[in-house]
């Protein structure tokens, strides 16, 4: 009888531990960009500091025609600063944001050269 109770208690303890590991491991994996939940999108993840900076810098593309040379230079410098951060990201995130960053940096460079 005691043996049965002991086995039941062990089973319950194992279930709690396994459940806890899964609960902790999923968000950790998600942050690393390799979510085990295939339907979890980047959109649902919390915004990282580099993303905030990226969004702030690249939001200026629609204003690029009215920006001064100094403002354009500052935005280009911020793009340059973001580049190594993006190069350090997980493969797909890196590929997507490398292209997106290049597009907005190239536009600022283009506007700067057009304003000469």
């Amino acid at each position: 009888m005691n043996n049965v109770r002991l086995r039941k208690a062990v089973r319950q303890a194992v279930a709690v531990i396994v459940g806890g590991v899964i609960f902790v491991a999923l968000p950790l994996n998600h942050e690393a960009g390799t979510s085990l939940l295939s339907s979890t999108t980047l959109a649902q993840a919390a915004e990282q500091p580099w993303e905030q900076e990226f969004n702030e810098v690249c939001a200026k593309t629609t204003d690029s025609m009215s920006l001064s040379r100094e403002e354009l230079k500052s935005l280009i410098a911020r793009c340059e600063k973001l580049k190594p951060v993006i190069e350090g990201l997980e493969e797909t995130t890196r590929k997507v944001y490398r292209k997106r960053l290049e597009m907005c940096k190239n536009l600022f460079v283009f506007m700067l050269e057009s304003n000469k």
């Binding site: 593309t61 629609t62 690029s64 025609m65 597009m103 536009l107 460079v109 283009f110």
Partner: peptide
């Protein structure tokens, strides 16, 4: 937008 056409 702008960046799709300029400068590529």
């Amino acid at each position: 937008g702008c960046e799709l056409c300029h400068p590529d």
